[in-house]
Design a protein around this nucleic acid. Structure first.
Length: 597
DNA sequence: CAGTGAGCGAGCTTCCGCTTGACTT
Protein backbone atom coordinates (compact mmCIF):
# COMPACT_ATOMS: atom_id res chain seq x y z
CA UNK A 1 0.00 0.00 0.00
CA UNK A 2 1.12 3.54 -0.76
CA UNK A 3 2.53 5.51 2.15
CA UNK A 4 0.42 8.28 3.67
CA UNK A 5 1.89 11.60 4.76
CA UNK A 6 0.41 14.33 6.91
CA UNK A 7 1.69 17.87 6.34
CA UNK A 8 0.70 20.63 8.80
CA UNK A 9 0.98 24.32 7.93
CA UNK A 10 -0.34 27.37 9.80
CA UNK A 11 -2.86 28.84 7.38
CA UNK A 12 -5.82 26.98 5.82
CA UNK A 13 -5.41 28.96 2.60
CA UNK A 14 -1.77 27.96 2.42
CA UNK A 15 -2.81 24.34 2.96
CA UNK A 16 -5.21 24.57 0.04
CA UNK A 17 -2.51 25.94 -2.26
CA UNK A 18 0.09 23.37 -1.28
CA UNK A 19 -2.37 20.52 -1.74
CA UNK A 20 -2.31 21.29 -5.47
CA UNK A 21 1.45 20.79 -5.65
CA UNK A 22 1.57 17.46 -3.85
CA UNK A 23 0.43 13.92 -4.77
CA UNK A 24 -2.81 12.53 -3.33
CA UNK A 25 -1.08 10.56 -0.58
CA UNK A 26 -0.04 13.85 1.05
CA UNK A 27 -2.76 15.15 3.33
CA UNK A 28 -2.26 18.86 3.99
CA UNK A 29 -3.92 20.43 7.04
CA UNK A 30 -3.67 23.70 8.96
CA UNK A 31 -3.08 24.36 12.66
CA UNK A 32 -4.74 27.77 12.18
CA UNK A 33 -2.09 29.58 14.18
CA UNK A 34 -1.00 28.70 17.70
CA UNK A 35 -2.75 25.72 19.24
CA UNK A 36 -1.74 26.17 22.87
CA UNK A 37 -1.17 29.20 25.03
CA UNK A 38 -1.15 30.47 28.58
CA UNK A 39 -4.71 30.88 29.95
CA UNK A 40 -6.12 34.10 28.61
CA UNK A 41 -8.04 34.92 31.77
CA UNK A 42 -8.98 33.38 35.09
CA UNK A 43 -11.98 31.70 33.47
CA UNK A 44 -9.63 29.66 31.27
CA UNK A 45 -7.52 28.42 34.15
CA UNK A 46 -8.26 24.80 35.07
CA UNK A 47 -9.82 24.42 38.54
CA UNK A 48 -6.91 22.27 39.59
CA UNK A 49 -4.53 25.22 39.41
CA UNK A 50 -6.80 28.04 40.52
CA UNK A 51 -5.63 27.88 44.12
CA UNK A 52 -1.96 28.13 43.20
CA UNK A 53 -0.36 31.45 44.09
CA UNK A 54 0.88 31.79 40.53
CA UNK A 55 -2.45 30.89 38.88
CA UNK A 56 -3.18 34.49 37.94
CA UNK A 57 0.03 34.66 35.89
CA UNK A 58 -0.29 31.19 34.39
CA UNK A 59 3.42 30.78 35.06
CA UNK A 60 4.91 28.98 38.04
CA UNK A 61 7.51 31.63 38.69
CA UNK A 62 9.03 29.80 41.66
CA UNK A 63 9.31 26.52 39.81
CA UNK A 64 11.61 27.42 36.92
CA UNK A 65 8.96 29.64 35.32
CA UNK A 66 7.05 26.63 34.17
CA UNK A 67 4.25 27.83 31.89
CA UNK A 68 0.73 26.47 32.21
CA UNK A 69 -0.36 25.71 28.68
CA UNK A 70 -3.99 25.14 27.79
CA UNK A 71 -5.75 24.48 24.51
CA UNK A 72 -8.12 27.35 23.77
CA UNK A 73 -11.73 26.32 23.12
CA UNK A 74 -11.70 27.18 19.43
CA UNK A 75 -8.73 24.89 18.86
CA UNK A 76 -10.12 21.67 20.36
CA UNK A 77 -11.87 20.69 17.13
CA UNK A 78 -8.76 21.39 15.07
CA UNK A 79 -6.67 19.23 17.39
CA UNK A 80 -9.21 16.41 17.19
CA UNK A 81 -9.16 16.59 13.39
CA UNK A 82 -5.39 16.56 13.26
CA UNK A 83 -5.25 13.60 15.63
CA UNK A 84 -7.66 11.65 13.44
CA UNK A 85 -5.67 12.40 10.29
CA UNK A 86 -2.42 11.49 12.01
CA UNK A 87 -3.74 8.00 12.78
CA UNK A 88 -3.54 6.99 9.12
CA UNK A 89 -0.22 8.73 8.48
CA UNK A 90 3.13 7.00 8.14
CA UNK A 91 5.06 10.23 8.48
CA UNK A 92 4.35 13.70 9.84
CA UNK A 93 5.75 16.83 8.20
CA UNK A 94 5.67 19.99 10.32
CA UNK A 95 5.62 22.83 7.82
CA UNK A 96 4.85 25.83 10.01
CA UNK A 97 6.56 29.14 9.25
CA UNK A 98 10.30 29.35 9.64
CA UNK A 99 10.48 31.82 12.46
CA UNK A 100 10.41 31.75 16.24
CA UNK A 101 6.63 31.50 16.48
CA UNK A 102 6.41 28.89 13.73
CA UNK A 103 9.02 26.70 15.39
CA UNK A 104 7.04 26.92 18.60
CA UNK A 105 3.83 25.84 16.88
CA UNK A 106 5.61 22.78 15.53
CA UNK A 107 6.87 21.91 18.99
CA UNK A 108 3.42 22.29 20.56
CA UNK A 109 1.99 20.09 17.82
CA UNK A 110 4.38 17.26 18.70
CA UNK A 111 3.59 17.73 22.39
CA UNK A 112 -0.15 17.42 21.83
CA UNK A 113 -0.43 15.01 18.92
CA UNK A 114 2.24 12.69 20.36
CA UNK A 115 2.94 11.14 16.98
CA UNK A 116 4.17 7.55 16.90
CA UNK A 117 5.38 7.87 13.32
CA UNK A 118 8.58 9.69 12.22
CA UNK A 119 8.34 13.48 12.47
CA UNK A 120 10.16 15.85 10.13
CA UNK A 121 10.40 19.63 10.18
CA UNK A 122 10.23 21.21 6.74
CA UNK A 123 10.41 24.87 5.77
CA UNK A 124 9.92 26.86 2.60
CA UNK A 125 9.90 30.56 1.83
CA UNK A 126 7.83 30.59 -1.31
CA UNK A 127 4.87 28.52 -2.32
CA UNK A 128 5.92 26.99 -5.61
CA UNK A 129 6.06 23.35 -6.67
CA UNK A 130 9.85 23.32 -6.86
CA UNK A 131 10.32 25.03 -3.50
CA UNK A 132 7.98 22.58 -1.79
CA UNK A 133 9.52 19.52 -3.41
CA UNK A 134 12.94 20.72 -2.36
CA UNK A 135 11.70 21.37 1.19
CA UNK A 136 10.37 17.80 1.41
CA UNK A 137 13.83 16.49 0.61
CA UNK A 138 15.70 18.77 3.02
CA UNK A 139 13.96 18.26 6.32
CA UNK A 140 15.43 18.71 9.79
CA UNK A 141 14.34 18.30 13.41
CA UNK A 142 12.46 20.86 15.50
CA UNK A 143 14.92 23.40 16.87
CA UNK A 144 14.31 23.17 20.61
CA UNK A 145 16.51 26.15 21.41
CA UNK A 146 14.50 28.36 19.11
CA UNK A 147 11.34 27.08 20.81
CA UNK A 148 12.88 28.09 24.16
CA UNK A 149 13.45 31.58 22.81
CA UNK A 150 9.77 31.83 21.81
CA UNK A 151 8.64 30.54 25.19
CA UNK A 152 10.85 33.09 26.92
CA UNK A 153 9.33 35.86 24.80
CA UNK A 154 5.86 34.65 25.69
CA UNK A 155 6.62 34.43 29.41
CA UNK A 156 8.28 37.83 29.51
CA UNK A 157 5.31 39.47 27.80
CA UNK A 158 2.92 37.85 30.26
CA UNK A 159 5.01 38.89 33.24
CA UNK A 160 5.22 42.49 32.06
CA UNK A 161 1.55 42.75 31.15
CA UNK A 162 0.07 40.97 34.15
CA UNK A 163 2.38 42.55 36.70
CA UNK A 164 2.22 46.16 35.60
CA UNK A 165 -1.45 46.34 34.55
CA UNK A 166 -2.74 45.72 38.13
CA UNK A 167 -0.63 48.65 39.31
CA UNK A 168 -2.60 50.82 36.89
CA UNK A 169 -5.93 49.45 38.21
CA UNK A 170 -4.99 50.55 41.68
CA UNK A 171 -3.41 53.86 40.83
CA UNK A 172 -5.22 55.12 37.75
CA UNK A 173 -8.39 53.31 36.70
CA UNK A 174 -10.01 49.90 36.52
CA UNK A 175 -9.40 47.69 33.48
CA UNK A 176 -6.39 49.56 32.09
CA UNK A 177 -3.40 47.77 30.60
CA UNK A 178 0.32 48.02 30.11
CA UNK A 179 2.59 45.92 27.94
CA UNK A 180 5.99 45.73 26.28
CA UNK A 181 4.58 46.89 22.94
CA UNK A 182 1.48 48.98 23.65
CA UNK A 183 3.08 51.09 26.37
CA UNK A 184 5.99 52.11 24.17
CA UNK A 185 3.68 52.89 21.24
CA UNK A 186 1.58 55.03 23.58
CA UNK A 187 4.65 56.75 24.93
CA UNK A 188 5.74 57.73 21.43
CA UNK A 189 2.39 59.46 20.92
CA UNK A 190 2.48 61.14 24.32
CA UNK A 191 6.00 62.41 23.72
CA UNK A 192 4.93 63.85 20.38
CA UNK A 193 2.00 65.57 22.06
CA UNK A 194 4.34 67.07 24.66
CA UNK A 195 6.51 68.42 21.86
CA UNK A 196 3.40 70.00 20.39
CA UNK A 197 2.48 71.56 23.70
CA UNK A 198 5.99 72.96 24.17
CA UNK A 199 5.93 74.27 20.63
CA UNK A 200 6.05 78.01 20.15
CA UNK A 201 4.81 79.43 16.92
CA UNK A 202 7.00 81.83 14.95
CA UNK A 203 5.88 84.22 12.22
CA UNK A 204 7.85 85.47 9.27
CA UNK A 205 7.19 86.99 5.90
CA UNK A 206 8.68 86.64 2.46
CA UNK A 207 7.92 87.59 -1.13
CA UNK A 208 6.65 85.40 -3.93
CA UNK A 209 7.18 86.91 -7.38
CA UNK A 210 5.53 85.93 -10.61
CA UNK A 211 8.11 86.56 -13.33
CA UNK A 212 8.20 85.91 -17.06
CA UNK A 213 10.78 85.16 -19.69
CA UNK A 214 9.92 85.02 -23.40
CA UNK A 215 6.25 84.58 -22.68
CA UNK A 216 6.61 81.88 -20.00
CA UNK A 217 5.66 82.56 -16.38
CA UNK A 218 7.23 81.03 -13.29
CA UNK A 219 7.52 81.64 -9.54
CA UNK A 220 10.54 83.02 -7.75
CA UNK A 221 10.91 83.41 -4.00
CA UNK A 222 12.90 85.98 -2.03
CA UNK A 223 15.89 84.33 -0.31
CA UNK A 224 18.29 87.16 0.61
CA UNK A 225 18.72 90.90 0.99
CA UNK A 226 22.26 92.21 0.49
CA UNK A 227 23.69 88.71 0.91
CA UNK A 228 21.90 88.20 4.20
CA UNK A 229 19.68 85.13 4.02
CA UNK A 230 15.96 85.32 4.88
CA UNK A 231 14.82 83.07 7.70
CA UNK A 232 12.67 80.05 6.80
CA UNK A 233 10.65 77.65 8.93
CA UNK A 234 13.55 75.33 9.66
CA UNK A 235 15.61 78.19 11.11
CA UNK A 236 13.32 78.57 14.13
CA UNK A 237 13.62 76.60 17.35
CA UNK A 238 10.46 74.60 18.01
CA UNK A 239 10.35 75.08 21.76
CA UNK A 240 11.22 78.76 21.94
CA UNK A 241 9.79 80.04 18.68
CA UNK A 242 13.00 82.08 18.33
CA UNK A 243 15.68 81.89 15.68
CA UNK A 244 18.06 79.06 16.36
CA UNK A 245 21.28 80.23 17.95
CA UNK A 246 24.24 81.44 15.90
CA UNK A 247 22.14 82.09 12.84
CA UNK A 248 22.78 85.41 11.24
CA UNK A 249 19.53 85.68 9.39
CA UNK A 250 16.92 88.22 8.53
CA UNK A 251 13.42 87.76 9.94
CA UNK A 252 11.08 89.93 7.93
CA UNK A 253 7.83 91.50 9.03
CA UNK A 254 5.01 92.74 6.85
CA UNK A 255 6.20 96.35 6.64
CA UNK A 256 9.72 95.38 5.63
CA UNK A 257 8.39 93.04 3.00
CA UNK A 258 6.14 95.76 1.57
CA UNK A 259 9.14 98.07 1.34
CA UNK A 260 11.10 95.38 -0.49
CA UNK A 261 8.25 94.90 -2.93
CA UNK A 262 8.27 98.66 -3.56
CA UNK A 263 11.99 98.57 -4.36
CA UNK A 264 12.06 95.47 -6.54
CA UNK A 265 8.98 96.53 -8.51
CA UNK A 266 10.97 99.36 -10.00
CA UNK A 267 14.21 97.40 -10.39
CA UNK A 268 15.63 95.37 -13.23
CA UNK A 269 15.35 91.60 -12.80
CA UNK A 270 18.42 89.74 -14.00
CA UNK A 271 19.42 86.10 -13.90
CA UNK A 272 22.75 85.87 -12.06
CA UNK A 273 23.32 82.13 -12.08
CA UNK A 274 21.86 78.95 -13.49
CA UNK A 275 22.68 75.54 -12.14
CA UNK A 276 21.49 72.32 -13.71
CA UNK A 277 21.63 68.93 -12.02
CA UNK A 278 20.79 65.48 -13.21
CA UNK A 279 19.50 62.93 -10.75
CA UNK A 280 17.98 59.50 -10.72
CA UNK A 281 15.64 57.83 -8.27
CA UNK A 282 15.07 54.18 -7.56
CA UNK A 283 11.76 52.45 -6.88
CA UNK A 284 10.83 51.37 -3.35
CA UNK A 285 10.79 47.76 -2.28
CA UNK A 286 7.69 45.65 -2.84
CA UNK A 287 5.15 45.85 -0.02
CA UNK A 288 5.54 44.35 3.43
CA UNK A 289 2.78 44.63 6.05
CA UNK A 290 3.88 47.98 7.44
CA UNK A 291 4.38 49.69 4.09
CA UNK A 292 1.10 48.31 2.76
CA UNK A 293 -0.68 49.80 5.76
CA UNK A 294 1.06 53.14 5.22
CA UNK A 295 0.30 53.38 1.53
CA UNK A 296 -3.20 51.99 1.97
CA UNK A 297 -3.80 54.76 4.43
CA UNK A 298 -2.16 57.50 2.39
CA UNK A 299 -3.45 56.64 -1.05
CA UNK A 300 -6.72 54.83 -0.31
CA UNK A 301 -7.62 56.36 3.06
CA UNK A 302 -8.14 52.98 4.71
CA UNK A 303 -7.49 52.22 8.38
CA UNK A 304 -4.83 49.65 9.24
CA UNK A 305 -7.61 47.22 10.09
CA UNK A 306 -9.37 47.83 6.79
CA UNK A 307 -6.15 47.28 4.88
CA UNK A 308 -5.60 43.95 6.62
CA UNK A 309 -9.19 42.78 6.23
CA UNK A 310 -9.14 43.58 2.53
CA UNK A 311 -5.72 42.00 2.02
CA UNK A 312 -6.91 38.86 3.84
CA UNK A 313 -9.77 38.57 1.38
CA UNK A 314 -7.45 39.02 -1.60
CA UNK A 315 -5.16 36.36 -0.12
CA UNK A 316 -8.00 33.92 0.36
CA UNK A 317 -9.17 34.44 -3.21
CA UNK A 318 -5.67 33.65 -4.44
CA UNK A 319 -4.86 37.12 -5.79
CA UNK A 320 -1.95 37.99 -3.52
CA UNK A 321 0.68 36.30 -1.38
CA UNK A 322 0.54 36.28 2.41
CA UNK A 323 -0.22 39.70 3.91
CA UNK A 324 1.58 39.43 7.26
CA UNK A 325 5.25 39.63 6.40
CA UNK A 326 8.34 41.66 7.14
CA UNK A 327 10.31 40.45 4.13
CA UNK A 328 10.44 42.51 0.89
CA UNK A 329 11.94 39.54 -0.94
CA UNK A 330 10.47 38.33 -4.25
CA UNK A 331 10.73 34.66 -5.20
CA UNK A 332 12.55 33.71 -8.41
CA UNK A 333 9.20 32.92 -10.05
CA UNK A 334 7.75 36.25 -9.02
CA UNK A 335 10.77 38.17 -10.27
CA UNK A 336 10.50 36.49 -13.64
CA UNK A 337 6.74 37.05 -13.84
CA UNK A 338 7.03 40.71 -12.82
CA UNK A 339 9.64 41.34 -15.50
CA UNK A 340 7.55 39.72 -18.20
CA UNK A 341 4.55 41.88 -17.26
CA UNK A 342 6.61 45.07 -17.09
CA UNK A 343 7.90 44.49 -20.57
CA UNK A 344 4.45 43.64 -21.87
CA UNK A 345 2.72 46.57 -20.18
CA UNK A 346 5.31 49.36 -20.42
CA UNK A 347 7.90 48.18 -22.95
CA UNK A 348 11.50 47.07 -22.73
CA UNK A 349 12.85 50.55 -21.94
CA UNK A 350 11.00 50.48 -18.67
CA UNK A 351 12.55 47.25 -17.42
CA UNK A 352 15.44 47.53 -14.94
CA UNK A 353 18.76 46.28 -16.30
CA UNK A 354 18.96 43.48 -13.74
CA UNK A 355 16.38 41.96 -11.38
CA UNK A 356 16.18 44.06 -8.22
CA UNK A 357 16.18 42.33 -4.85
CA UNK A 358 15.50 44.08 -1.54
CA UNK A 359 16.46 43.31 2.04
CA UNK A 360 14.51 43.94 5.25
CA UNK A 361 15.36 47.21 6.95
CA UNK A 362 13.88 46.75 10.40
CA UNK A 363 15.92 45.19 13.18
CA UNK A 364 13.60 42.44 14.34
CA UNK A 365 12.66 41.11 10.92
CA UNK A 366 12.26 37.33 10.82
CA UNK A 367 11.54 37.00 7.11
CA UNK A 368 9.50 33.80 7.14
CA UNK A 369 7.42 34.96 4.17
CA UNK A 370 7.82 36.75 0.88
CA UNK A 371 6.88 40.31 0.04
CA UNK A 372 3.17 41.03 -0.48
CA UNK A 373 2.75 40.72 -4.25
CA UNK A 374 0.33 39.43 -6.87
CA UNK A 375 0.17 35.63 -6.71
CA UNK A 376 0.75 33.33 -9.67
CA UNK A 377 0.55 35.02 -13.03
CA UNK A 378 0.07 38.60 -11.86
CA UNK A 379 -3.48 38.97 -13.23
CA UNK A 380 -3.87 42.58 -14.45
CA UNK A 381 -6.22 44.48 -12.10
CA UNK A 382 -8.89 45.03 -14.75
CA UNK A 383 -9.13 41.31 -15.41
CA UNK A 384 -9.60 40.24 -11.79
CA UNK A 385 -13.32 41.00 -11.61
CA UNK A 386 -12.63 42.69 -8.28
CA UNK A 387 -14.44 45.86 -7.24
CA UNK A 388 -14.24 48.61 -4.61
CA UNK A 389 -11.58 48.45 -1.91
CA UNK A 390 -10.38 45.05 -3.07
CA UNK A 391 -9.70 46.30 -6.58
CA UNK A 392 -8.01 49.45 -5.28
CA UNK A 393 -5.72 47.57 -2.91
CA UNK A 394 -4.89 44.90 -5.47
CA UNK A 395 -4.05 47.57 -8.05
CA UNK A 396 -1.72 49.23 -5.54
CA UNK A 397 0.05 45.92 -4.85
CA UNK A 398 0.25 45.05 -8.53
CA UNK A 399 1.73 48.42 -9.49
CA UNK A 400 4.16 48.55 -6.57
CA UNK A 401 5.49 45.09 -7.40
CA UNK A 402 6.00 45.93 -11.06
CA UNK A 403 7.61 49.27 -10.20
CA UNK A 404 10.21 47.45 -8.12
CA UNK A 405 11.51 45.82 -11.30
CA UNK A 406 11.40 48.91 -13.48
CA UNK A 407 14.12 51.29 -14.57
CA UNK A 408 15.19 54.31 -12.56
CA UNK A 409 13.47 57.64 -13.08
CA UNK A 410 15.71 60.34 -14.51
CA UNK A 411 15.20 63.90 -13.43
CA UNK A 412 16.80 67.14 -14.35
CA UNK A 413 16.55 70.05 -11.96
CA UNK A 414 17.38 73.67 -12.59
CA UNK A 415 18.18 76.17 -9.87
CA UNK A 416 18.23 79.85 -10.79
CA UNK A 417 19.34 82.94 -8.85
CA UNK A 418 17.81 86.28 -9.78
CA UNK A 419 18.75 89.75 -8.57
CA UNK A 420 16.47 92.77 -8.31
CA UNK A 421 17.76 95.86 -6.51
CA UNK A 422 19.36 94.60 -3.29
CA UNK A 423 17.23 91.45 -3.23
CA UNK A 424 18.05 87.94 -4.39
CA UNK A 425 15.31 85.62 -5.57
CA UNK A 426 15.45 81.92 -6.32
CA UNK A 427 13.50 79.68 -8.66
CA UNK A 428 13.74 75.92 -9.08
CA UNK A 429 12.26 73.63 -11.65
CA UNK A 430 12.27 69.89 -12.08
CA UNK A 431 11.79 68.04 -15.28
CA UNK A 432 11.30 64.32 -15.52
CA UNK A 433 13.49 63.28 -18.41
CA UNK A 434 12.42 59.65 -18.23
CA UNK A 435 9.67 58.47 -15.85
CA UNK A 436 10.87 54.88 -15.48
CA UNK A 437 9.12 53.23 -12.51
CA UNK A 438 7.11 56.37 -11.80
CA UNK A 439 4.92 55.34 -14.70
CA UNK A 440 3.62 52.49 -12.56
CA UNK A 441 3.93 53.79 -9.03
CA UNK A 442 4.65 57.20 -7.57
CA UNK A 443 4.98 57.18 -3.80
CA UNK A 444 4.80 60.93 -3.58
CA UNK A 445 1.27 61.02 -4.87
CA UNK A 446 -1.73 60.87 -2.60
CA UNK A 447 -4.04 59.17 -5.05
CA UNK A 448 -3.57 55.65 -6.34
CA UNK A 449 -3.03 56.72 -9.90
CA UNK A 450 0.45 56.98 -11.23
CA UNK A 451 1.33 60.13 -13.07
CA UNK A 452 4.33 62.35 -13.48
CA UNK A 453 2.61 65.56 -14.36
CA UNK A 454 3.59 67.23 -11.10
CA UNK A 455 6.80 68.72 -12.40
CA UNK A 456 7.38 72.46 -12.19
CA UNK A 457 9.08 73.60 -15.36
CA UNK A 458 11.30 76.60 -15.93
CA UNK A 459 11.93 78.19 -19.31
CA UNK A 460 15.42 77.79 -20.78
CA UNK A 461 17.31 80.47 -18.85
CA UNK A 462 20.94 81.59 -18.88
CA UNK A 463 23.02 84.03 -16.86
CA UNK A 464 22.35 87.63 -17.82
CA UNK A 465 18.82 87.07 -19.08
CA UNK A 466 16.46 89.90 -18.26
CA UNK A 467 13.10 88.95 -16.75
CA UNK A 468 9.90 90.90 -16.48
CA UNK A 469 8.03 91.10 -13.21
CA UNK A 470 4.30 90.45 -13.40
CA UNK A 471 3.49 90.60 -9.75
CA UNK A 472 5.24 90.48 -6.37
CA UNK A 473 3.15 89.43 -3.38
CA UNK A 474 3.89 89.46 0.34
CA UNK A 475 3.38 86.10 2.04
CA UNK A 476 2.92 85.47 5.73
CA UNK A 477 4.16 82.20 7.23
CA UNK A 478 3.95 80.59 10.59
CA UNK A 479 5.93 77.59 11.79
CA UNK A 480 3.98 74.42 12.45
CA UNK A 481 4.31 72.00 15.37
CA UNK A 482 5.39 68.42 14.61
CA UNK A 483 2.41 66.46 13.29
CA UNK A 484 0.54 63.99 15.47
CA UNK A 485 0.93 60.33 14.66
CA UNK A 486 -1.55 58.70 12.33
CA UNK A 487 -2.22 54.96 12.26
CA UNK A 488 0.19 54.69 9.35
CA UNK A 489 2.98 56.75 10.89
CA UNK A 490 2.82 55.02 14.27
CA UNK A 491 3.14 51.67 12.51
CA UNK A 492 6.16 53.03 10.68
CA UNK A 493 7.68 54.23 13.96
CA UNK A 494 6.99 50.89 15.66
CA UNK A 495 8.58 48.98 12.84
CA UNK A 496 11.63 51.20 12.88
CA UNK A 497 12.06 50.56 16.60
CA UNK A 498 11.44 46.84 16.13
CA UNK A 499 8.35 46.93 18.37
CA UNK A 500 5.44 44.66 17.52
CA UNK A 501 5.07 42.28 14.59
CA UNK A 502 3.20 42.36 11.28
CA UNK A 503 0.34 40.39 12.84
CA UNK A 504 -0.07 42.86 15.70
CA UNK A 505 0.38 46.39 14.36
CA UNK A 506 -3.33 46.85 13.74
CA UNK A 507 -4.43 45.30 17.04
CA UNK A 508 -2.03 47.39 19.12
CA UNK A 509 -3.72 50.51 17.74
CA UNK A 510 -7.13 49.01 18.54
CA UNK A 511 -6.06 48.34 22.12
CA UNK A 512 -4.90 51.92 22.62
CA UNK A 513 -8.25 53.13 21.25
CA UNK A 514 -10.23 50.61 23.36
CA UNK A 515 -8.51 51.72 26.55
CA UNK A 516 -9.20 55.31 25.56
CA UNK A 517 -5.49 56.08 25.83
CA UNK A 518 -5.81 57.81 22.47
CA UNK A 519 -8.71 59.11 20.40
CA UNK A 520 -9.04 59.20 16.66
CA UNK A 521 -9.42 62.76 15.42
CA UNK A 522 -9.76 62.98 11.63
CA UNK A 523 -6.93 60.59 10.97
CA UNK A 524 -4.69 61.72 13.84
CA UNK A 525 -4.24 59.77 17.06
CA UNK A 526 -4.54 62.12 20.02
CA UNK A 527 -3.45 61.00 23.50
CA UNK A 528 -6.08 61.47 26.21
CA UNK A 529 -5.63 62.49 29.82
CA UNK A 530 -5.62 58.79 30.74
CA UNK A 531 -2.93 58.16 28.14
CA UNK A 532 -0.80 60.90 29.67
CA UNK A 533 -1.39 59.68 33.22
CA UNK A 534 -0.47 56.09 32.38
CA UNK A 535 2.64 57.10 30.44
CA UNK A 536 3.75 59.41 33.21
CA UNK A 537 3.36 56.69 35.81
CA UNK A 538 5.24 54.16 33.72
CA UNK A 539 8.04 56.60 32.93
CA UNK A 540 8.47 57.42 36.57
CA UNK A 541 8.33 53.92 38.02
CA UNK A 542 9.04 51.49 35.18
CA UNK A 543 11.31 53.57 33.01
CA UNK A 544 13.25 50.63 31.57
CA UNK A 545 10.04 48.99 30.31
CA UNK A 546 8.90 52.01 28.32
CA UNK A 547 12.38 52.62 26.97
CA UNK A 548 12.50 52.46 23.18
CA UNK A 549 15.48 50.12 23.50
CA UNK A 550 13.79 47.57 25.75
CA UNK A 551 12.51 45.36 22.95
CA UNK A 552 15.75 45.41 20.97
CA UNK A 553 17.66 44.37 24.08
CA UNK A 554 15.15 41.59 24.67
CA UNK A 555 15.55 40.45 21.06
CA UNK A 556 19.31 40.27 21.53
CA UNK A 557 18.87 38.04 24.56
CA UNK A 558 16.34 35.86 22.72
CA UNK A 559 18.84 35.44 19.90
CA UNK A 560 21.44 34.33 22.43
CA UNK A 561 18.97 31.87 23.90
CA UNK A 562 18.21 30.53 20.43
CA UNK A 563 21.91 30.06 19.82
CA UNK A 564 22.43 28.33 23.15
CA UNK A 565 24.68 31.05 24.52
CA UNK A 566 22.30 32.24 27.22
CA UNK A 567 20.25 30.17 29.66
CA UNK A 568 16.62 31.20 29.46
CA UNK A 569 16.07 30.64 33.19
CA UNK A 570 18.96 32.85 34.11
CA UNK A 571 17.49 35.57 31.92
CA UNK A 572 13.95 35.27 33.29
CA UNK A 573 15.09 35.01 36.91
CA UNK A 574 17.10 38.15 36.65
CA UNK A 575 14.32 39.99 34.86
CA UNK A 576 11.55 39.01 37.27
CA UNK A 577 13.06 37.81 40.56
CA UNK A 578 16.37 39.67 40.54
CA UNK A 579 17.31 42.45 42.97
CA UNK A 580 16.14 45.08 40.53
CA UNK A 581 13.68 42.66 38.99
CA UNK A 582 10.10 43.40 37.99
CA UNK A 583 8.59 41.73 41.07
CA UNK A 584 10.70 43.64 43.55
CA UNK A 585 10.12 46.93 41.76
CA UNK A 586 6.38 46.37 41.61
CA UNK A 587 6.06 45.46 45.30
CA UNK A 588 8.09 48.48 46.26
CA UNK A 589 6.29 50.89 43.93
CA UNK A 590 2.95 49.60 45.12
CA UNK A 591 3.63 51.08 48.52
CA UNK A 592 5.45 54.12 47.21
CA UNK A 593 2.83 55.25 44.75
CA UNK A 594 0.16 54.76 47.42
CA UNK A 595 1.97 57.15 49.75
CA UNK A 596 1.89 59.96 47.23
CA UNK A 597 -1.87 59.94 46.89
C1' DC B 1 -43.03 34.45 58.83
C1' DA B 2 -41.59 36.17 54.46
C1' DG B 3 -39.46 39.61 52.11
C1' DT B 4 -36.03 43.36 52.00
C1' DG B 5 -31.60 45.18 51.98
C1' DA B 6 -27.16 46.41 54.44
C1' DG B 7 -22.73 44.55 54.70
C1' DC B 8 -19.20 41.60 53.41
C1' DG B 9 -16.24 38.81 50.68
C1' DA B 10 -14.94 36.54 46.41
C1' DG B 11 -13.74 36.93 41.74
C1' DC B 12 -12.41 39.62 37.89
C1' DT B 13 -9.86 43.00 34.92
C1' DT B 14 -4.56 42.66 32.02
C1' DC B 15 0.03 40.80 28.07
C1' DC B 16 2.05 39.46 22.74
C1' DG B 17 1.76 36.80 18.63
C1' DC B 18 0.04 33.11 15.38
C1' DT B 19 -4.30 32.07 12.68
C1' DT B 20 -9.70 32.43 11.10
C1' DG B 21 -14.38 32.90 11.57
C1' DA B 22 -18.34 34.38 14.59
C1' DC B 23 -20.03 38.11 16.30
C1' DT B 24 -21.51 43.17 16.85
C1' DT B 25 -21.34 48.39 15.56
Amino acid sequence: MEKQYLVIVESPTKAKTIRKFLPKNFIVEASVGHIRDLPQSAADTPLKYKKEPWARLGINVDQDFEPLYIIPKDKTKIIADLKAKLKDADELYLATDEDREGESISWHLTEILKPKCPVKRMVFHEITKSAIESALKHTRQVDVKLVRAQETRRILDRLVGFTVSPVLWKKVAFGLSAGRVQSVALRLMVERERQRMRFKKANYWDVLADVAFSGKNFDARLIAIKDKRIAQGKDFDETTGMLKEAKDLLVLGEKEVQAIIGRVSKAAWTVTSVEEKQSTSKPSAPFITSTLQQEGSRKLHLSTRDVMRTAQSLYEQGFITYMRTDSPNLSQDALAEARVIVEKTYGKDYLSDAPRQFTAKSKGAQEAHEAIRPAGTFTPPEKTGLTGKELDLYTLIWRRTLASQMSEAQKSSMSVRISADDATFSATGTKIVFPGFLKAYDEGLESGDASWGTEALLPALKTGDALSLKEAAAQAHETKPPARFTEASIVQAMEKAGIGRPSTYASVISTLLDRKYVLRNSGALVPTFTGFAVTQLLEKHFDNLVDLEFTSKMEESLDEIAEGQLDHLKYLKEFYLGKKGLKEITDQKDKEIGMEN
